[in-house]
Design a protein around this nucleic acid. Structure first.
Lengths: 206, 206
DNA sequence: ACGACTTTGTGAAGGGAGGCACAAAGTTGC
DNA sequence: GCAACTTTGTGCCTCCCTTCACAAAGTCGT
């Protein structure tokens, strides 16, 4: 379920405010979904609500965290130390949510050895060892478009089956590999589309 | 249509290889969709294909670009000059696709005046002027979660109706404002979910 | 202890997006 | 100029996701 992270985030925020119990209505509002959908989603996890009262915030949060597999730390490696890769390496958001960046990788020998955000850049040949010895399970692709497929192939060959792709290309992977895509320019283009529709609508009926 | 940017990207790549004509089958493969869906999507734009031959790459690319409103440059402002905001300011991907970052903004007076990637950081109070005089239409929110709603409110108050949100919160906006969200940690959590399912499956049937 | 009230969990209905399959249209070879 | 082949455009069908609505269940006041 792609919405569980949103619920977890809303619950964490509520817990931070010292709220112990929440109804499906309130939580749905905070997470930006309908209450019926929220209840149906949560019912898949089990019956953790109490009729007439609502859900226990702490309890539900830990159930969702368990379902998402967030009870453990997930080691992450970032491939590609260009502009984007450096930014991601410096970004604190990973560690805050249980994702530990254990390696920065680059194909380019001139970059290997450099230190970014206190972490040395390592060659791609280190990948198998990272998977084997450090339990690396998630790879982040921050290369340019051209290098993305090759980087992905190397990740998959090393045994990684979860990939987060920032490059604006469609990656070809075996069926058992999961690829999630984050694409700035696609999002911007969708916004441009709406912006234009707005402009056209205004021109017609000002 | 959220898939048009993907088609455009595939077409641009084909044009770069000097390919002049493409069938729906080939283009669909390159864009990672089914050929039937591609044809249906393109038929909404009009009949730009030739039966028995396929689509003219250049022609189709410019039609899609026009539909997306990419014939003009879209001015963009980035709000929030923390880690993420600085990274975005330095990121070249915007300009490459017709999105011009015309302003960097921050609420914090200690950051205002600083220069990042050759562009000065300006106060939030400059917003109305940017919208009025420079045609600013798209706002990018790169603040921390806490400041996101306030930043969004200021963007909307200034007249911006297209927002790209990097903060992991659900923004409340009027109906005529479009918000697109890019959320790293949600994507990572979804990957963790799959990673855990994989681990569980392996433990059951090794 | 009982009744009224609140809230969950879920069956049924509704809608929309994607896929299938085929007719229409255009091209190419002879 | 005609026939065979290729490829688009689209009507129809199916399936999944969302929403509606209500019964079951549990709480709180009296």
């Amino acid at each position: 379920m792609a919405r569980l992270p949103g619920y977890l985030r809303a619950l964490t925020a509520l817990a931070g405010e010292g709220i112990a119990s929440v109804s499906s209505e309130e939580l749905a509002l905070a997470a930006g979904v309908s209450s019926a959908m929220l209840r149906k989603d949560l019912s898949y996890l089990g019956s953790y609500g109490v009729r007439g009262v609502g859900y226990d915030v702490e309890r539900l949060a830990s159930e969702i965290a368990a379902a998402l597999g967030l009870t453990q730390d997930w080691p992450v490696a970032i491939v590609g130390m260009g502009n984007l890769g450096r930014a991601l390496a410096a970004y604190r958001g990973f560690a805050e949510r249980g994702f530990r960046v254990i390696a920065l990788l680059d194909h380019d020998e001139r970059v290997v050895g450099e230190e970014i955000a206190g972490c040395p850049v390592r060659p791609m040949s280190d990948l198998p060892g990272l998977v084997e010895r450090d339990g690396l399970a998630i790879g982040v692709i921050a290369t340019a478009s051209e290098g993305a497929q090759e980087a992905c192939d190397e990740l998959v060959a090393a045994g990684i089956r979860s990939v987060l792709n920032f490059a604006p290309v469609v990656l070809a992977v075996p069926d058992d590999v999961v690829v999630r895509k984050v694409d700035l320019s696609t999002e911007l283009q969708i916004l441009a589309f709406h912006g234009q529709r707005l402009a056209v609508a205004e021109a017609v009926a000002p």
